[in-house]
Design a protein around this nucleic acid. Structure first.
Lengths: 242, 242
DNA sequence: CGAGAAGTTGAAGCGTGTCAAATGCAGTGG
DNA sequence: CCACTGCATTTGACACGCTTCAACTTCTCG
């Protein structure tokens, strides 16, 4: 799974080798389920890469309301940025048991300086994160509960498929309904009702902890899911115009 | 206004000079109010900087629902990224008459390569955009209509203050209620009612096209506005830890 | 002065939230 | 192996924030 790192960007064998080496030499960290990885206000000195497990980024209001602002799946970069910033404006926490590796910030900087294709790839990664965040804004702002959940499922499926963790319209789904509530901005009770609705319409169903997208085309259609915002499918295609 | 570009980052006189020169030599573009600047799907070849006016980034659903995912104010960079990407996943449009300058993408790349403090500053700028987008996600996901508008006003005031376009708790406010509706994900009618509520509570009021934040402390408090996510206030402070 | 856009208000309905209670399910210790 | 416990899921009833529709008023600007 390690080498899927920035795999969904466009890289050659050489760059993949460099990444592999970086991951191999980096320190591995293990977190149990539901553990804080990084809390608001802290100033981490390292960069982190997800190897296994699910985690999420969340923000909190003074009165306790919480909003998940994004998920981390295997292969994702956790904090492409934070080492520079004045302090975390949000928190990171694992959802399942999680494996990640830590790379010193300046070591990573060196690596970027030494290879411009890698540098571009990580820029790209950052931009995709931005694009995802915009799509979430649209999701929360304009879509109804039913569409929101459908859209989230489509996104997760697509992203997991990319790293080989989803195929045949199904995948391991470790989130609780309360988790989904936090991510979609609807109440846990209503998430439940909406899932029933999805089930009754033969769009999705759960078999144990596996989520099955029974009719993925119709699901994408009701969710108005357009995978372009994930900016995938350019593996091997070079981003050079100059 | 031009030199306020990345002013709210931490730069020395030398870098400001470079930016000034870049802006001075770049091509100026003028847009009337409510004009498309860049549409979904296009692949721009230039970078743009806002000199004057307000614009917004928006995404659209197939059935026409629209969501503003961010505002551009004077001094902001419009597309720090897009020249790399495979195609716009959203659109840009002016809200007021707008002045911006265009810089060739590779010219900009040269500039970044030649000055590492500038490079860092623009990285920072990108990260702040990400942080803002996350805050919007929180805003739409967890805050009620009343809080959402309050929060948006706080953000706009803070950002405008930074570039000298707001002070003494008031500023020029060119948006219509329909614009606010698009940004906050509530209906235009309800925006109207919510503004009335804000007025009745002596929190904000309009005098013509000027928005007055009558009790900014209480406004921040009801909005749970915490300016840290904008990562300002570090002018002059260097971002070097290594 | 006229016309279109923006703002305002009322009434009715629906999508979600909240509260509360019941059920199912997995892990723990006796 | 069976209570026991705690957590996730499920369901019902009711309340409320917000949307929708429609009409009216007020601004803005040619």
């Amino acid at each position: 799974v390690a080498r899927k790192l920035a795999n969904y960007l466009r890289l050659g064998e050489a760059e993949l080798g460099i990444l592999d080496r970086m991951v191999a030499t980096a320190r591995e960290r293990y977190f149990p389920a539901r553990a804080d990885i990084l809390r608001e206000g802290e100033r981490p000195r390292v960069m982190r890469f997800m190897l296994a497990g699910w985690a999420h980024r969340y923000k909190q209001l003074p009165d306790g309301r919480r909003q998940t602002v994004g998920y981390f799946l295997p292969g994702d970069v956790c904090d492409l940025h934070i080492p520079m910033m004045s302090g975390m404006d949000h928190s990171l926490a694992s959802l399942t048991p999680t494996v990640l590796v830590e790379v010193e910030h300046h070591e990573f900087e060196q690596l970027l300086k030494s290879n411009s294709r890698l540098e571009k790839a990580f820029w790209w990664e950052g931009l995709v994160n931005l694009a995802i965040q915009r799509e979430w804004t649209l999701n929360l702002g304009q879509r109804a509960a039913f569409e929101r959940l459908a859209h989230l499922f489509c996104e997760l499926y697509t992203r997991l498929e990319c790293v080989g963790l989803a195929s045949k319209n199904l995948f391991e789904f470790p989130l609780t309904q309360a988790d989904l509530a936090e991510a979609t901005g609807i109440s846990a009770v209503h998430v439940n009702r909406t899932l029933r609705e999805l089930r009754e319409q033969n769009l999705t169903k759960f078999i144990g902890k596996t989520l099955v997208l029974q009719d993925i085309e119709r699901l994408k259609s009701v969710a108005a899911f357009d995978a372009r915002y994930l900016h995938l499918g350019h593996v091997g295609e070079r981003a050079d115009d100059e």
